[in-house]
């Protein structure tokens, strides 16, 4: 099942002009655990989706509201000539397509 179909919120946004944060929110503990504990939900799998290296992928867990945050480097600064998404708000894919 795709992460996009498991999470009830799947969103991305700039965290400053050089980082992206993808937030995944879940309705149930089971869904949250299913993604968090999946052997595929690791920096080694996520990094190549965003053309980066595993050491630059941070996975942060906010258990109280069943949320997982994935922080990724932007490939270029927000609004620079190479950028395609100034606010970074459509960068939750390809992560959303990751099959869990």
């Amino acid at each position: 099942m795709r992460i996009y179909d498991i999470a009830f919120v799947c969103r991305s946004k700039n965290a400053g002009p050089f980082q992206l944060t993808v937030d995944l929110m879940f309705k149930t503990r089971e869904e949250f655990d299913r993604v968090l504990n999946s052997p595929r939900f690791v920096p080694e799998t996520i990094a190549p989706l965003y053309r980066t290296t595993p050491d630059k992928v941070q996975i942060k867990v906010f258990e109280r509201i069943l949320t997982i945050k994935v922080v990724l480097p932007r490939l270029c600064g927000s609004g620079s000539p190479e950028d395609t998404d100034v606010y970074g708000s459509q960068q939750h894919f390809p992560l959303g397509d990751l099959d869990i």
Binding site: K13, A15, T21, K60, F62, R64, I65, K69, V71
Partner: peptide
């Protein structure tokens, strides 16, 4: 409580 706690996620690299 959840709406306020969730705010610390917004555009931030770390919720804690």
């Amino acid at each position: 409580p959840d709406s306020v706690a969730a705010h610390s996620l917004y555009e931030q690299p770390d919720p804690y």
